[in-house]
């Protein structure tokens, strides 16, 4: 059987909030190393890769590899029933056709269980090569969410230009044009607030704002976000989930005609 128990149940709540608007359904692939999920949005312009390691759970048991196809809106509805401080347990019998979520309140006085039917999804899996990126930008995740929200009012595309001076986010549209420049933080006293840029060579790419705004739904999972860019390959937007894993969003660029 499969059983994964997490005292920090709010992590699962936030993970579903971070993917349910971009993906309608996905398969949770579970083995003894943990839970992986990889899925593209319907337009195949973006891809989500979630990893929750077994050692990040308070109890993790996976007797046989199991792939559970789920409707993410349904899972989000179930997880909305969990309190922020609840312990969340996900469990399923081997080759079961349902999964059960159990929520325990901190004082154990309230225990809820929700059973949901699984779906047969034969979603294609993509091979994502390990890549050395020309530019990586670590910055406060709230800052990135703010930039995406502000610039998407000016146009449906955003240009991200990374040079040794810093990173510039731009958008143009009917009402005009907007540029936001972030310089590398000089004195990194509080890592979480710093903008740290590693640049092997400058990169400028154009992306659709709407996907970036879907990605920033993961902001509550991590105080920092890491953007990785190379010429003419998908942008990677990564949110580390403390002590258990990460959620990575890949976004295909808009290629000049």
């Amino acid at each position: 059987m499969f059983e994964a128990r997490l005292l920090r149940g709010s992590i699962l709540k936030k993970v579903l909030e971070a993917i349910k608007d971009l993906l309608t359904q996905a398969t949770f692939d579970c083995d003894d190393s943990g839970i992986q999920l990889q899925a593209m949005d319907n337009s195949h312009v973006s891809l989500v890769s979630l990893q929750l390691r077994a050692d990040g759970f308070d109890k993790y048991r996976c007797d046989r590899n199991i792939s559970m196809g789920m409707n993410l809106n349904s899972v989000a509805k179930i997880l909305k029933c969990a309190g922020d401080k609840d312990t969340v347990t996900m469990k399923a019998q081997d080759n079961a056709d349902t999964v059960t979520f159990v929520f325990e309140s901190p004082n154990q006085e309230k225990v809820s269980d929700y059973e949901m039917k699984l779906m047969n999804l034969d979603l294609e899996h993509l091979g994502i090569p390990e890549t050395e990126y020309s530019c990586t930008i670590r910055m406060p995740s709230a800052e990135f969410a703010r930039i995406c929200r502000d610039l998407s009012q000016f146009g449906d595309s955003m240009v991200i230009a990374c040079t040794k001076e810093g990173v510039k986010f731009s958008a143009t549209g009917e009402i005009g044009s907007a540029n936001i420049k972030l310089a590398q933080t000089a004195s990194v006293d509080k890592e979480e607030e710093a903008v740290i840029i590693e640049m092997d060579e400058p990169v400028t790419l154009t992306f659709a704002c709407q996907y970036l705004n879907y990605f920033t739904k993961a902001t509550s999972l991590s105080p920092q976000v890491q953007l990785s860019m190379s010429a003419d390959v998908p942008l990677v937007v990564e949110y580390r989930i403390q002590d258990i894993g990460h959620i990575r969003y890949y976004l295909a660029p808009k290629i000049e005609d």
Partner: peptide, 14 residues
Amino acid sequence: KGKQATMMNFFKKI
């Protein structure tokens, strides 16, 4: 501005 690429332009199905 620019043609939107998709994941299939970059990653292979496995």
